[in-house]
Design a protein around this nucleic acid. Structure first.
Length: 116
DNA sequence: ACCTTGACGGCCA
DNA sequence: ATGGCCGCCAAGG
């Protein structure tokens, strides 16, 4: 993440990530990179991944709606059962083939575009 | 203190 | 289209 004069603490950044994820509507998805960009930390998508890893201990964070930039379910191994993430997405009407969301762009929810 | 490992992404061959 | 490299940066060994 990019730090300016004010040093943003890790825990605060994680909180902000979770808050954005909570805003993703059912049936829509976004990416690590877009979340990072929205939080002014473009280039630190990786850090968003860490926040997501810790998100399972948090209430109401639809972690399955966050995928990588190609629409691949790269976080599937963090849902207990490896097929859990896909099941959750399909339950919301998305189609997943080979760990990839079909028509990914059509379901993409970009926070910087949607939130205002 | 050093090295490795990621739920990443952009760039270039 | 695919794959390797490399910034990025927190955690864990």
């Amino acid at each position: 993440m990019r730090r300016g004069k004010i040093n943003i603490r890790r825990s605060d950044f994680y909180e902000m990530v979770w808050d954005v994820v909570r805003l993703i509507p059912p049936g829509r998805v976004t990416t690590y990179g877009h979340i990072a960009e929205y939080l002014g930390a473009k280039g630190s998508a990786r850090l968003v991944g860490y926040a997501m890893n810790a998100s399972h201990s948090q209430p109401d964070v639809p972690a399955h709606r966050v995928v990588n930039r190609k629409g691949l379910l790269t976080g599937k191994h963090h849902f207990g059962h490896p097929e859990r993430m896909q099941q959750l997405l399909e339950a919301e009407g998305l189609i997943v083939q080979n760990d990839q969301i079909v028509d990914f762009e059509k379901h993409l929810w970009v926070p910087s575009r949607e939130l205002r």
